[in-house]
Lab assay of single mutants.
Amino acid sequence: SAVVMEEGSPGEVPVLVEPPGLEDVEAALGMDRRTDAYSRSSSVSSQEEKSLHAEELVGRGIPIERVVSSEGGRPSVDLSFQPSQPLSKSSSSPELQTLQDILGDPGDKADVGRLSPEVKARSQSGTLDGESAAWSASGEDSRGQPEGPLPSSSPRSPSGLRPRGYTISDSAPSRRGKRVERDALKSRATASNAEKVPGINPSFVFLQLYHSPFFGDESNKPILLPNESQSFERSVQLLDQIPSYDTHKIAVLYVGEGQSNSELAILSNEHGSYRYTEFLTGLGRLIELKDCQPDKVYLGGLDVCGEDGQFTYCWHDDIMQAVFHIATLMPTKDVDKHRCDKKRHLGNDFVSIVYNDSGEDFKLGTIKGQFNFVHVIVTPLDYECNLVSLQCRKDMEGLVDTSVAKIVSDRNLPFVARQMALHANMASQVHHSRSNPTDIYPSKWIARLRHIKRLRQRICEEAAYSNPSLPLVHPPSHSKAPAQTPAEPTPGYEVGQRKRLISSVEDFTEFV
């Protein structure tokens, strides 16, 4: 048969007729292969192709491409040299491709048809291009793949890379869960390890502090508590009631339409708007009261037996805890006409967050109470924005700035309102402590230090009264110190430094 060459192609190359033996071998191979691939376009007849790359030819070592076609129900084999250009295909004639002069020997084609199974398996396991790669995943090629499931790999992101949580363990979102698992493993320790309690022994800490320079003076030496005195035992138990972190309780009120001037209507609300609910979820963490331990979680007086509701929101960081007394989460009882059960919590909070959804101005004093010092007013606006402002009593104007209003988005509203309420509550605590000038409020841990110092002074006084020969370590507060001759004046800087060093040991009130 003659071949018409394309323009620009090399000279004529004689194409030899395939021997009958080659056709029989390739026909047997075509019957084993699956003929249901995917359909081509209507211009080209339905056909199945599979590209198999052999590394070497037997005796020649030339890479070839073998295409199996099922045109007219008769499979045909096409061998081509890759750099050459194939002729145009037609549905009426068999596929013809040019070969190099080196394939002119018909014996070479017979060798190609009689490829060993080793070469076929190696060509099938190679990388296939384009559409033949999808075909190689079918059941027909499963014989050339190794048996057994593939090893499982770690989760992959859409980009093909490992997620960040699997790369950096410290930033993994499941870090707290692993800590819980470690605690569970520790709890399952053997009885021999049960006595080993991690941490620092208080006796060891005391020993280090006792021999430090801070205890060089007799006034700073630790003293032993009497065991037989019940009054001192009660004082030590009272110390446990003062937490070592700051605590805040903040009221949250929802004002519906037409309720801006009605205290009873505001306290009777059992739910609010959708934006109000989203605002609550951002204030803190939802907790169930019956599962809380009052000595570990500050509840601000809420009952854990269901008297004040089942849930509330709280927030904490390293040095403070805040609980929100939310009116809509507290039960509304029919027998309580004046809502006294709610007001006994909300009316005693220094700061209230008022979500004013009424469309009218909310005035300070609508919720009557002796300790309502500051109101954080949240007014929802259009386009997911809110107006946040402050209202306070006249005696609080020096501590709280009420002249600045803020426009905040719904997303950042819980954070801004919480921070403003916490700052206002700190100012309210300082303002409330002014009624007792001898006990200015600095912080909870300073209050613990003052309680310890008062307890020490009482013990020293009782020891001096029981044994008059012992001198008083600290003179009583009601006694007057003996007159001392004025010492020589020293520079102001040295006096300030000495006073600062003494105050650092005794108390921190002056620095606050």
Results as ranks from 00 to 15, higher is better:
286 L>I: 07
318 D>E: 15
321 Q>S: 12
500 R>P: 14
225 L>F: 11
258 G>L: 03
338 H>Q: 13
237 Q>D: 11
482 P>H: 10
437 P>H: 07
470 L>E: 15
408 V>Y: 04
233 E>I: 14
499 K>A: 14
510 E>P: 15
497 Q>C: 10
281 T>V: 06
220 N>P: 14
324 F>D: 02
270 E>G: 05
428 S>M: 14
228 E>W: 08
449 L>N: 13
384 E>R: 06
431 H>N: 06
451 H>Q: 14
372 N>W: 03
483 A>V: 08
280 L>S: 02
480 K>L: 12
327 A>L: 04
218 E>A: 07
402 T>M: 07
425 N>R: 01
431 H>M: 14
274 Y>S: 07
449 L>I: 05
235 S>P: 06
236 V>E: 09
491 P>Q: 13
253 L>C: 04
236 V>F: 10
379 T>Q: 15
364 L>C: 15
418 R>N: 02
357 D>H: 03
389 S>D: 05
404 V>F: 11
278 E>D: 09
269 N>R: 02
341 D>K: 15
300 G>R: 13
387 L>K: 05
321 Q>F: 10
336 D>N: 15
282 G>M: 03
236 V>I: 15
349 D>N: 06
407 I>R: 03
242 I>T: 10
470 L>Y: 14
296 K>F: 05
266 I>F: 03
361 D>T: 08
262 S>N: 14
457 Q>C: 05
350 F>M: 07
232 F>A: 09
307 E>Y: 11
350 F>S: 03
358 S>T: 03
433 S>K: 06
346 L>Q: 05
266 I>S: 03
318 D>V: 06
376 V>S: 01
410 D>F: 00
390 L>E: 02
370 Q>P: 15
408 V>M: 01
273 S>Q: 01
326 I>N: 03
383 Y>P: 03
467 N>P: 07
454 R>E: 15
493 Y>A: 13
395 D>R: 05
433 S>M: 08
508 F>A: 15
501 L>A: 15
317 D>W: 00
371 F>Q: 14
253 L>E: 01
398 G>K: 08
276 Y>T: 00
253 L>K: 01
306 G>N: 12
484 Q>C: 14
415 F>Q: 04
489 P>R: 10
381 L>T: 03
232 F>W: 14
333 K>T: 13
496 G>N: 09
331 P>Y: 04
325 H>T: 04
304 V>I: 07
368 K>T: 13
451 H>T: 14
427 A>R: 03
347 G>H: 15
387 L>C: 04
501 L>S: 13
222 P>N: 09
441 Y>E: 14
325 H>P: 03
278 E>G: 05
283 L>K: 00
420 M>Q: 04
302 L>F: 11
448 R>V: 06
233 E>M: 09
482 P>C: 12
290 K>C: 08
388 V>Q: 02
283 L>E: 00
459 I>W: 14
375 H>W: 15
475 P>C: 15
342 K>S: 06
442 P>Q: 07
364 L>F: 15
392 C>R: 02
441 Y>K: 11
435 S>D: 14
430 V>L: 06
510 E>L: 08
499 K>F: 10
421 A>T: 01
309 G>I: 10
225 L>M: 15
487 A>W: 09
375 H>P: 00
240 D>E: 08
407 I>W: 06
287 I>M: 11
265 A>Y: 02
496 G>T: 11
345 H>R: 10
453 K>T: 15
230 Q>V: 13
453 K>P: 08
360 E>H: 05
378 V>G: 00
456 R>K: 12
325 H>N: 04
321 Q>Y: 13
227 N>P: 10
439 D>A: 06
270 E>S: 08
279 F>P: 00
338 H>W: 08
274 Y>I: 08
311 F>M: 06
470 L>T: 15
494 E>C: 10
416 V>S: 02
445 W>G: 10
427 A>D: 00
475 P>H: 14
389 S>C: 12
448 R>I: 04
252 V>L: 03
296 K>C: 05
471 P>R: 06
342 K>D: 05
347 G>Q: 15
341 D>R: 15
354 V>G: 01
448 R>E: 12
404 V>M: 13
345 H>E: 08
455 L>A: 09
259 Q>F: 02
389 S>K: 10
294 P>R: 11
496 G>H: 08
407 I>N: 04
296 K>G: 10
482 P>V: 12
260 S>A: 13
362 F>G: 01
381 L>M: 10
419 Q>N: 10
339 R>G: 14
422 L>D: 01
470 L>A: 13
275 R>M: 00
474 H>S: 15
390 L>A: 05
279 F>E: 01
335 V>T: 14
355 Y>V: 01
426 M>L: 10
478 H>I: 14
360 E>S: 10
427 A>L: 08
234 R>N: 14
500 R>N: 15
255 V>W: 02
259 Q>M: 02
445 W>P: 07
254 Y>A: 00
414 P>Y: 00
412 N>V: 05
372 N>G: 07
495 V>A: 14
